[in-house]
């Protein structure tokens, strides 16, 4: 070996000079390789397996991710992060009973932080929804909110279940509680939707006006106002709002790949204008580009309404009033 002193200096220089050299070491594939080496070197540990599972998930390799997480659970049966991740992955894989099992196990971990408990309850709610147990899904949302009253997504999902289960009064009260506790603007909008679904037109209109005034992009709010105005039999004003909303939506709609949130708005505007076929088409397009269950359900409802078989009677109100 050459003199250590001179080599230290030389190596330091080299190290710093080489820092700028291109090296794509941070990609998920490289991370997985490095983590795999660590697992061989240090032996299996829950932390490293969790890290590797996350990288697998990024690559869409859910099966590999689940396998790592199952190994991690064996090593650290009380690691709530691992259990939470595993439940989520299994749910993504469509293995609902497995996801439910892991969620239940996670809930039994002693000393679980309140935020973690709420997050796990929401996963359990999704599992139950996937199994068609609507009441249990709703109960889990409510319980999650008892543990973490700041969880906006739980308020929104609870509201959606209450709507499906015909609990309009509870829905409005729940959202008002959420607004008090979090101040979240999304809940303000959802409460107005609840008022509209409930047919409280005047109250909804009063809540809509200040929001509309404060908005730069008014399309969504004009559609909401149109619903309220229709309910109050002010059809001309409602149609004016809908036409104006459609103009704004067209201006904002991307050329090639569509924006599902704008498609959902356009579908509703068209639905309210009585353009049922066009609305169904928009819901279909929205479902195809990330609109999720909401778009699918709305499209299905409208098709059934068209064929005289309403799926959601409480929402036919606005379609039958055209």
């Amino acid at each position: 070996m050459a003199s250590i002193g001179t080599r230290i200096g030389w190596s330091l220089l080299c190290a710093f000079l080489c820092l700028g050299v291109a090296r794509a070491h941070d990609s998920p594939e490289h991370q997985i390789e490095a983590l795999s080496e660590r697992l061989i070197r240090e032996g299996a540990s829950a932390d490293v397996l969790l890290e590797r599972a996350i990288e697998y998930r990024v690559l869409g390799k859910l099966k590999e991710a689940a396998r790592d997480l199952q190994r991690a659970v064996r090593l650290a049966p009380s690691d709530s992060l691992v259990l939470l991740e595993l439940a989520q992955i299994e749910l993504q894989r469509g293995r609902v009973s497995e996801a439910l099992l892991w969620a239940r196990r996670a809930l039994q971990v002693p000393g679980l932080a309140t935020g973690e408990r709420a997050a796990i309850l929401m996963i359990r709610s999704h599992c139950r929804a996937a199994q068609g147990s609507k009441l249990e899904a709703l109960d889990d949302c409510s319980e999650a909110l008892r543990w973490n009253p700041q969880l906006i997504s739980a308020y929104l999902e609870r509201s959606a279940w209450q709507q499906r289960l015909h609990r309009p009064h509870e829905r409005i009260l729940g959202l008002e509680e959420g607004i008090r506790r979090t101040g979240a603007g999304l809940l303000v909008a959802e409460r107005i939707e609840a008022l509209l679904d409930e047919g409280q037109w005047q109250q909804a209109l009063e809540a809509i006006e200040p929001e509309l005034t404060a908005s730069r992009l008014q399309g969504t709010w004009k559609i909401r106002r149109a619903r309220a105005l229709k309910g109050l039999s002010r059809r001309t004003e409602a149609e004016r709002d809908l036409q104006s909303a459609l103009e704004e939506i067209e201006l904002r709609m991307p050329r090639v790949v569509k924006d599902s949130s704008l498609l959902m708005d356009r579908a509703l505007a068209r639905e309210l204008l009585g353009q049922t076929e066009a609305a169904i088409q928009d819901y279909k397009l929205a479902a195809g580009c990330g609109g999720g269950e909401e778009a699918i359900e709305a499209g299905r409802r409208l098709r059934r309404t068209r064929s005289g078989r309403p799926l959601w009677p409480w929402r036919t109100q606005r379609t039958t009033q055209h």
Binding site: S153, G185, S215, R216, Q218, S260, S261, G292, A295
Partner: peptide, 21 residues
């Protein structure tokens, strides 16, 4: 977090953009 348009974050984003002046 859920990045889909039906998720809470994307819905908030849309609502925030409506108000941005």
């Amino acid at each position: 977090l859920d990045r889909k348009p039906s998720g809470a974050m994307a819905k908030w984003l849309k609502a925030d953009l409506e108000k941005a002046k």
